[in-house]
């Protein structure tokens, strides 16, 4: 993480802001991934949708 932080461009304030944006984007992407993968475990049991 420290190395990744050091690789970010700009002064420390910009690096922190960039880090926050990257972490938030990663969490959002992770939630979408979890939702998608969650449908494979349990899609809600609705009849009439294509097999997961």
């Amino acid at each position: 993480m420290r190395r990744f932080f050091a690789l970010l461009p700009g002064p420390t304030v910009v690096k922190i802001l960039l880090m926050v944006v990257i972490v938030v984007a990663a969490l959002i992407a992770l939630m979408f991934l979890f939702e998608w993968a969650g449908d494979l475990l349990d899609s809600g049991g609705v009849i009439g949708e294509a097999p997961a």
Binding site: G38, L41, D42, G44, G45, V46, I47
Partner: peptide, 8 residues
């Protein structure tokens, strides 16, 4: 009526 089996 539909419902979740293992989540939610």
């Amino acid at each position: 009526i539909s419902g979740h089996r293992t989540t939610y």
